[in-house]
Amino acid sequence: MSSAADKTRDEDHILAAEYVLGLLAPAQVAAVESSLATNATLRAEVADWSDRFGRLTDDMPEVTPPARVWHAITGRIFPDDTVPFWRRLGLPQIAVGAALAAVVLWGAISFDLLRPAMPLRTDVVAEIGRVDTPVHFRAEYDSAASELRLVRLNGGPQPGRALEVWLIAGTAAPVSVMVWPDGAESVELRLPPELARVLSGATLAISDEPAGGSPTGAPTGAVLATGVAETL
């Protein structure tokens, strides 16, 4: 076996381990995740490292959590004791299609749950909605980096529809921040300076819109959740 081949193989093994440990920069994470979709060897290596490092938890004693934790969980996921609408409608069912685009999306949304996010120096936060609103998101803003992270806690768009995130500063008209990518758990984006300036104290809102987002540039559907951005 050539040493060049060994090197490449070692490099993949290390990359998989660094990915599992959460040591990679965001661009590297994105590169690993797009390879995961098509590279079964890398996928197996990531699963193996997760299993190996997971054994470091073997000696952590089991502790039965207090009953209030289960009550809180069921209160969040079955708020009105009917099947929650996002399950009735179904989150994107993962079908491994032949199309590469579908495969890449599959990789991205299946693995984002399985890695730690990069740390932000959050100084502005907003809770958009609550556990009992149709959708529930959290916004975290790092003003030094102008990075806004939006995390979907609950809910999602109805089939054929989209969720759009808006920023409303005082009495100004709502400005579109983004259309939520279908199936995403969290999204990070750089906030343009004119929005960054007015974020603290502004209202963030999520509305139900046609697929692709509002055709008019203003919210057209129901407002599903709102929250005020507060400086920590």
Binding site: V20, R43, A44, A47, S50, D51, G54, T57, I73, R76, I77, W86, L91, Q93, I94, V96, W106, I109, S110, F111, L113, L114, L153, N154, E185
Partner: peptide
């Protein structure tokens, strides 16, 4: 809550069940 909302992703990633759960928790 994450496990409930994302249990349909479990099969795709090729982990054993406990590894998947522990990875999410960790």
């Amino acid at each position: 809550v994450k496990i409930w909302c994302n249990a349909d992703r479990y099969r795709v990633v090729g982990y054993s069940p406990m590894t998947w759960l522990i990875t999410i928790a960790r």
